[in-house]
Design a protein around this nucleic acid. Structure first.
Length: 461
RNA sequence: GGCUGCGUAGCAAAAUGGUUAUGCAGUGGCCUGCAAAGCCAUCUACGGCGGUUCGAUUCCGCCCGCAGCCUCCA
């Protein structure tokens, strides 16, 4: 039985789909004016893992993740670059998809874009205006009137009276209430704009997600997710907009993932302490990043450091070492005990660290079977690979993983050649020469492992 | 000021009212020409103070510390 932590109730709840056997999942995606950083990678990997698990449980899943391709920062960046904003967003959407593929993140079923949803957005704003939940401010922008939505604050546990509006940012005098937020923003000269009943402008940030999610999944759907920082005001505002417009409950279950931190501080664009995915990929294999992300629970903070990434690499190598040289049989059944343990972990709010612990136990069993119980090797290896597949790891060829990527093949050839020389030295019992070759390779980050049958395998450290 | 959440061994990270997490690192052993990998064994824990309980790291209260949100942010 799958249990998921619901931010709305602050409790783990038994997951009950609105329609038996089906799940609608909406996740707030990226604003595309820069490369994805590790924090974005966490959202992608976490919800990809959630999606994989729903499918594994045989749910018919519709996974929607939007792209914010128009907003103030995009306009600003495009202006700075002297670039047309649409070109800028196309570039970064492509880059995002590249990063995604690298991290074995499967594409969502629907990837709606704000600029392609303008009609739906305008329709929703019209409804809100008609219901007096929205009004035109003194500057012509359309605002949402938070005072007229009685449940405002239900998700974040905030009380309108307790919020200190204006403490950190100037209150916009065009609004009736400082907490009111913009639905439609009037365009300045030369800004991208769309026609609307309120004049030429563009949608506010929050409204696009309300419009796109209800369009793709219906007025009322199962799960909405995103980063912790979106809880307030973004998701709170989405609830106000959607429930205000449709009169129906918006979302049953809210999932929020924790932040990636650097030196115990949130990784964010505004702090400038972020590492982009492509930057990190130069140093670490993509699977190591994925493993690193899944090694902590999705709601916990995740501290980014070289030490952590190196540990993740070592740990992953242990799993691949267990699989090395073992023949995986495609139609072999998965071991029931491990399968049950793994499912119990995942059923408990997607507890991937425990899931990984199960994989390590499995790997140890497999290593033992190699010397004790050859008949079990096949089922254990297959189980390891299949269960790991639910996390999107361990699907590569073990040798390919351990020999690393990105290095050219002539290097590999040279290494093989030196290994052969060392094997000859070993046969001649010239231990000094053999050790010298091994040390030289070690200097280059190549570790040799002799096996009992007289062959030598190697991996990159 | 208001609202969340967190504090576990050298590091990372889970679960749990009484019994082994797991990975890395350390120590001892097996294996090996020596290593590496692997296997076996083993040392380091639950921020502080009270309360509930036969028993609390686990539940409750208070305190201390940390992070996040209350502006855009995944």
């Amino acid at each position: 039985m799958l249990k998921i932590y619901n931010t709305l109730t602050r409790k783990k709840e038994l997951f009950q789909p609105l329609v038996a056997g089906k799940v609608g999942l909406y996740v707030c995606g990226m604003t595309v004016y820069d490369y994805c950083h590790i924090g974005h990678a966490r959202v992608m990997v976490v919800f990809d893992t959630v999606a994989r698990y729903f499918r594994y449980l045989n749910y018919e899943l519709t996974y929607v993740r939007n792209i914010t391709d128009i907003d103030d920062k995009i306009i600003k960046r495009a202006f700075e670059n002297g670039e047309e904003y649409g070109r800028l967003t196309e570039r970064f959407i492509d880059a995002m998809h590249e990063d995604e593929r690298a991290l074995s993140v499967l594409p969502p079923d629907i990837e709606p874009r704000a600029t392609q949803s303008i009609n739906d957005i305008i329709t929703m704003i019209k409804t809100l205006v008609a219901k007096e939940l929205a009004y035109v401010g003194t500057n012509g922008d359309v605002f949402y009137a938070v005072n007229n939505f009685k449940d405002y604050g239900q998700l974040s546990g905030k009380n309108l009276d307790d919020l200190q509006a204006g403490e950190r940012v100037d209150v916009d005098l065009a609004k009736r209430n400082p907490m009111d937020f913009v639905l439609w923003k009037m365009a300045k000269t030369n800004e991208p704009a769309w026609d609307s009943p309120w004049g030429s402008g563009r949608p506010g940030w929050h409204i696009e997600c309300s419009a796109m999610s209800t369009c793709c999944l219906g007025n009322h759907f199962d799960i909405h997710g995103g980063g912790m920082d979106l809880q307030f005001p973004h998701h709170e505002n989405e609830i106000a907009q959607s429930e205000g417009a449709t009169g129906e409950k918006f979302v049953n279950l809210w999932m929020h993932n924790g932040f990636v931190r650097v030196d115990d501080e949130k990784m964010s664009k505004s702090l400038g302490n972020f590492f982009t995915v492509r930057e990190v990929l130069k140093q670490y294999q993509p699977e190591i990043i994925r493993f690193f992300i899944l090694s902590s629970h999705y709601r916990s903070p995740l501290n980014y450091s070289d030490e952590q990434l190196n540990d993740a690499g070592t740990a992953l190598t242990r799993l691949y070492t267990a699989l090395r040289g073992v023949n995986i049989v495609a139609d072999e059944i998965v071991d029931e005990t491990y399968k049950t343990r793994f499912e119990q972990a995942m059923n408990d709010d997607f507890n991937t660290p425990v899931g990984l612990a199960v994989l390590f136990d499995l790997a140890r069993d497999l290593n033992k079977a190699k010397s004790n119980d050859p008949e079990k090797i096949s089922i254990l290896a297959t189980s390891l690979r299949q269960l790991a597949g639910l996390l999107g790891i361990l699907q590569n060829d073990p040798d390919a993983f351990m020999k690393g990527s990105g290095d050219n093949e002539s290097d590999d050839g040279k290494i093989e050649q030196q290994i052969q020389e060392r094997l000859n030295a070993k046969i001649a019992k010239e231990w000094l020469l053999a050790d010298k070759i091994r040390n030289e390779l070690k200097e280059q980050g190549v570790i040799l492992e002799d096996s009992p049958d007289g062959t030598t395998s190697w991996r990159r450290d």
